[in-house]
Design a binder for these strands. Structure first.
Lengths: 178, 178
DNA sequence: AATAATTGTTATGATTTATATCAATTATAA
DNA sequence: TTATAATTGATATAAATCATAACAATTATT
């Protein structure tokens, strides 16, 4: 998530009072809490607020391992699909090939993943995790799982399953994670 | 939502078959669908996928009116809080003051909103919508509401309410709607 | 053999988000 | 009052994310 939302923005205004609605010419909303109004009634708004919060949480969770979300996804998908090519892995997680190349450079320099030229098609690079990469991924999965459970606990009994079921009904291509 | 996800990524690979799991040295996932594996079990992953899709939909919905999501939010929040200052509105929707200035420049040039120096504090700019801005906002609300209802319809009976209730349990500062 | 398509790279652009600095103004302290 | 600090909004600029175009190497197709 980067690039969305924030945790700063320490409400500059402040103060009590009640604000008025409407947009009649010259109307004034005196000091008090800002009314986001109908915004809060849209699924998109609530969805975004929740997602931004979770993603920021996710970033903080992975920071100790020096992993960005896209790097985590890459390690996880390579681990589950060893030997697949760059283009395949990149498409699965929704990253453009040019950007994916740079991402892989970083993982390779850290000794977490490696590219090997396929002998059947010498244009493509087969991807694998190194033992070090697998170990780091396992560590990351522990942290992310713990965070995920904490969020699930907030949702009450059955809340997590209900949420996942509802989210599945909202379309979302399988290839647009990060 | 800008800046996340995509609708491109036309699966380059393709083909049938079944892939293997695991990361044993030298293991190979032969042609077939990529396994995102555990990724799909995380709330954050599903939440992000759904949110990215909804946000892209949102952007397309507002394109005919030449409005970006942040512009829509700004118009809506100004309308609900006429006369509030830039800093207050910016904080409410989670935009940095420097970036919010440029956004307002655009709205002012199009005659949708206006800044007026407050006489009580001549540093600050009170914000209002113009009649034209209010009219455009009403038009935008119609489009966005229709889109929101379509999404709600996918969730089945009571699904929309259940989803909103669950999302409220996930923290998300009130001031981070792009 | 000639042409077209694919893979991964390089270079580069657009967008979004964030930080640092500043002038104008207001608030606070001595 | 005067001196100092804080606030508002603007400007310039950086950083991160996401995307497109063009290219060499390789493979597929005609």
């Amino acid at each position: 998530m980067e690039g969305s939302g924030s945790n700063r923005a320490a409400q500059r205004g402040g103060g009590r009072g009640r604000s008025r609605r409407g947009s009649e010419a010259g109307a004034i909303s005196t000091s008090g809490a800002i009314e986001v109004g109908r915004l809060g009634e849209f699924i998109g708004y609530r969805l975004r607020r929740a997602q931004v919060w979770v993603f920021e949480n996710f970033i903080r969770t992975l920071t100790p391992l020096d992993l960005r979300p896209a790097q985590f996804s890459t390690l996880l998908v390579i681990d589950g699909n060893p030997g697949r090519t760059q283009a395949e892995i990149a498409a699965a997680i929704g990253i453009q090939p040019p950007n994916f190349g740079a991402l892989l450079d970083g993982l390779e320099k850290r000794g977490l993943a490696r590219r090997s030229r396929s002998q059947s098609d010498r244009r493509s690079h087969a991807l694998h995790l190194t033992p070090k990469g697998k170990a780091l991924l396992d560590e990351a999965i522990k942290l992310v799982s713990a965070q995920d459970e904490q969020i699930g606990a907030r949702l009450g009994p059955g809340g997590r399953e209900t949420l996942l079921q509802l989210l599945e009904k909202v379309p979302g291509l399988a290839d647009e994670m990060i």
